[in-house]
Design a protein around this nucleic acid. Sequence first.
DNA 1: CTGTTAGCGCCTTCAA
DNA 2: TTGAAGGCGCTAACAG
Lengths: 339, 339
Amino acid sequence: MKKKPTIEDVAKAANVSVATVSRVVNRQGGVRKATEERIVRAIDELNYVRSAIARSMVRKETKTIGVIIPDFTNPFFSEVISGLQKSALGQNYFTLISSSNESKMIESEIIQHYIERGVDGLVVTTADEKGDHLDPVIKAGIPIVAVDRQLKNYEVDTVLTGNREGAYEAVKHLISRGHTDIAIIRGPQGTTPGLERYRGFERAMKEYDLPIREEWIGEGDFMEGSGFACAKRFYEASKRPTAIFSSNNKMSIGAVKALQHLNWKIAEEIAFVGFDDIEIATFIKPNLTMVSRHMRNLGEIAFQLLHDRMKNNQEVSTVKRQHILSPFLIVRDSCQKFY
Amino acid sequence: MKKKPTIEDVAKAANVSVATVSRVVNRQGGVRKATEERIVRAIDELNYVRSAIARSMVRKETKTIGVIIPDFTNPFFSEVISGLQKSALGQNYFTLISSSNESKMIESEIIQHYIERGVDGLVVTTADEKGDHLDPVIKAGIPIVAVDRQLKNYEVDTVLTGNREGAYEAVKHLISRGHTDIAIIRGPQGTTPGLERYRGFERAMKEYDLPIREEWIGEGDFMEGSGFACAKRFYEASKRPTAIFSSNNKMSIGAVKALQHLNWKIAEEIAFVGFDDIEIATFIKPNLTMVSRHMRNLGEIAFQLLHDRMKNNQEVSTVKRQHILSPFLIVRDSCQKFY
DNA sequence: CTGTTAGCGCCTTCAA
DNA sequence: TTGAAGGCGCTAACAG
C-alpha cells in the first residue's frame, strides 16, 4: 500500500549493510547462515522485491528481449511467440511482444520503445524487409534475429522456412494428381515468403513444362480479403484453372470463402492447396491439403540463436547464421485428380 | 557499435548542460531556439536514445502495463490484447504481455517479473479466480483490472461479458426452435465464465420447465479435447439430446470435430450453439449459430479503466467498478427445428 | 534561458 | 564474512 521497500529498508530491518542483502538476494553466497536467515525474514516481512530497473541500471542489461510480429491475430505468429516466450522464460529472459500491424512506421515506434527500454536482443518478423528502419538497433549494438522474413540490408541471424521448397512440393503434388491448369495466389513479392513461394510454384511449373498464365496469377497481400478476390478473379477468367495454390493461411481462408460463395466445388471442380495449415482445413467437406510447418520450433530456434549472441558478447562470430526449417505437405482430400 | 551515448555525451557535444538537454528531450520548452537546434543535431549525430531505465528510476513510473492472459493461441485473447495494446500505445503506455498457460504457478512467476520491472498497472485474465497469488500486486499498490474472469478476494475493477445473459439467450433460442432435450458442455465451475454460462443455461431450462439431465451435463475445461469428449458422451447417452450448448470457442471446435467424426448431423440430427464465435462457424455445412462479443472492445475498456486508476493516483475512488459488455447471438443455421 | 547538484535503488570493488 | 562508497543515466528542484 505505502511505498515500495528498498534494499536499504531490508538492510535496516535485518541490521546489516545493503551489500550483504544484495549478496543474498543474488545468491552469491559468502554470507553466514544466521545472517542470511535474518535477511530472508526481513524480506518476507517487508514484501521486498528487488527493482529490476535499478538493477538494469548498474548491470547494463535488462534480461529482456524485444519481439515484433506483424499481426497478433494470425495463428501462425501466436504459435511462434508461444514457443519463443517459453524458451526465453526458461533462460530467465523476459519477452516484450508487440505487433506492427504490418506497418513499417509502427514498427519503427516499437523499435524506439525497445531501445529506450534497453532490450538485450531483438527478434523480428519485419514489415519491411529492406530493413533500414532497424538501423538504430544495429547502431545500438543490439543483436537481432530475423524470423520468417529477412532483413536484406544487414547481416543478421535468420530463421526461415523452406518457402520455395514447400511451394514446389505443393504444386508438384497438384501436378502429380493430373493438374496442368494451376493458378497461384501470390503474397507480396517484396517479401521473402511471398517471393520464394512464387519461385517454388514457378519451378514446378517449368519443370513440367506447364504454362503460367497471366490471369492465373493473383496478387495478394497475405490478408483474407485478397484471397477472396483472387479466387473470384480465377473463377471469372476466360479460362478457369483446375487448381489453386494459395501462398498463406489468411488468403487461404479468403479463397475458400470465395469458393464456397461461388459454389465452385473444391476437389470436384477445383483443387486446392495452401501454405500454412488452417483450422478449417479439417472441418470443411473435402479436407484441405496444406503445406504445414513446425511453428513453435521457429520461435524456439529464434531464441536459441539470439541467446547465443547475447551471451557471446556479440563478437564471437560475425558470420550470419541462417536456419531453414523444412515445411511438410499434409495430404488430405482437396487435390483429387479429376477429368 | 560502441557503447551507448548518454545525455552527458550529448551535453558535451552540444556544449550545454545535461539539464538543458533533458529539457529538449522532454519537450519542456524554455530553451532558446538556437540551443535546441544544436542539441538536436548532437542527438542525431550520436544516435542518442534516452534511457527509459534511468528515467523510470527517478520518475518512479515506467509507463508500462503488464498483461496476463491464459493462452496466446486462443483467438479470443488475441483480439483482446490487440485492442488493448492499441489503446495503450495511444496513451504512450507500453504493454508487457505474457501467457500463463492457465497455470497459477506460471502466473505467479509472471507477476513477480512484472513487479520487479515496476509496471504501473496490471490487466489480468487470471488462471485462478480466488486470486490470492495477486497479493504481491495489491501490496505493491499497483492498480489491477480483471478481464473476463474476476478476482474474488479483491475489490478491483472488472470487465466482464454478460455470460449468463448470453448463455440464456442461446438456450432460449434453442428452445424457441422446438428443442427440449438440451445438453451443455460446461466450463470449469470454478471460473466466472464457466459458472455463469451454466447458470444462464439453467435459468432458461427452468423457465421453460425443461429437465436438466445428469448425462447431458458435460464437464469441460475450456480446451478442445474436453469438447470432443463431451460430445461423444452425449452421443452414447442412454437418451441422446437433440441440441448442444457449448460454453466456449475451443470446446466448440472439439465438439464439432466429434460430431463430424460420429457423423452426427448438425442441424438435421443435433442442433448446436456455442459461446464465442469461431472461424469454422461460417465454413462448415450448416453454418454455426454462435454467441459472439466485441472482443477488441474488452481490451480497450480494460485499458480505459486502468488508465483512469493510474493517473488518479489510486485514491480517487475506492469503489470497484464493473463493466459488463453484452454478448449477442448470431443466428445462422445450426439450430433448425426438426421433428 | 541555462547550469549545478542531489538523489532514484542497486551492484561491485575495495577494505576491514 | 561483512561494510563503505562510488557510480549507472536521468530528472527536478534550486540558483544564477
